[in-house]
Write a protein that binds this DNA or RNA. Structure first.
Length: 175
DNA sequence: GCCAACGTTGGC
DNA sequence: GCCAACGTTGGC
């Protein structure tokens, strides 16, 4: 079981849940409380990372992370559009079974990343893991997700997710 | 401003 | 590890 993409499946999530409840459960309540404006215009995103480099369990361990290193103009544009408390799926890429494994929130809006001043990074914090990960394969099989930016352009590491797509994915994840 | 060459990313 | 897709660079 530990020899291919399955290691990023349910067994890993079970392991993560433990660490999650142990160290970072508080964001949900405080984030909801911050929405004083009443009507939510919260946006949704999908952010990719190679778990060999930085995965969901690293984010749980750290409590939050600066999402640096994005060097694609379209992705950088999305980073600059992200607002505090927006939600984002954490997607594990470049593994045998690429999949969405958890939900993050924008903890702080963008700041310059790098010397050139043309790139941006945001600060992200974990909200909760998905009950079961949603694989890329499963996403591709869903007609309701056929417009998703990440499916149309696989190399885009930060992409918007529509509200209907977000809800659909949550249902697929058993959330 | 076009386009060929090249580099990088990400899925398989 | 390979290859397709995409972005960037540089010659013209």
């Amino acid at each position: 079981m530990a020899d291919d993409g399955e290691e990023y499946g349910v067994p890993l999530l079970n392991r993560l849940k433990t660490g999650y409840s142990a160290c970072v459960y508080q964001p949900l309540a405080s984030l909801e409380g911050d929405c004083a404006t009443g009507e939510s215009d919260m946006a949704y995103w999908l952010m990719k990372s190679e778990p060999d480099e930085y995965g969901w369990d690293d984010l749980l361990r750290d409590g939050s992370t600066e999402w640096t290193g994005v060097r694609n103009h379209a992705a950088a544009k999305h980073l600059r559009a992200m607002k505090k408390d927006d939600r984002a799926f954490f997607y594990h890429s470049a593994i045998a079974q690429p999949c969405i494994v958890g939900i993050m929130a924008v903890a702080r809006e963008w700041q310059p990343d790098g010397e050139e001043g043309k790139w941006a990074s945001v600060k992200m914090t974990p909200v909760e893991p998905l009950p079961s990960p949603v694989t890329l394969k499963a996403m591709r099989a869903e007609g309701a997700l056929s417009d998703m930016a990440t499916l149309k352009q696989s190399r885009l590491s930060v992409s918007p997710v529509r509200e209907d797509e977000w809800k659909h994915l949550l249902r697929m994840a058993g959330a």
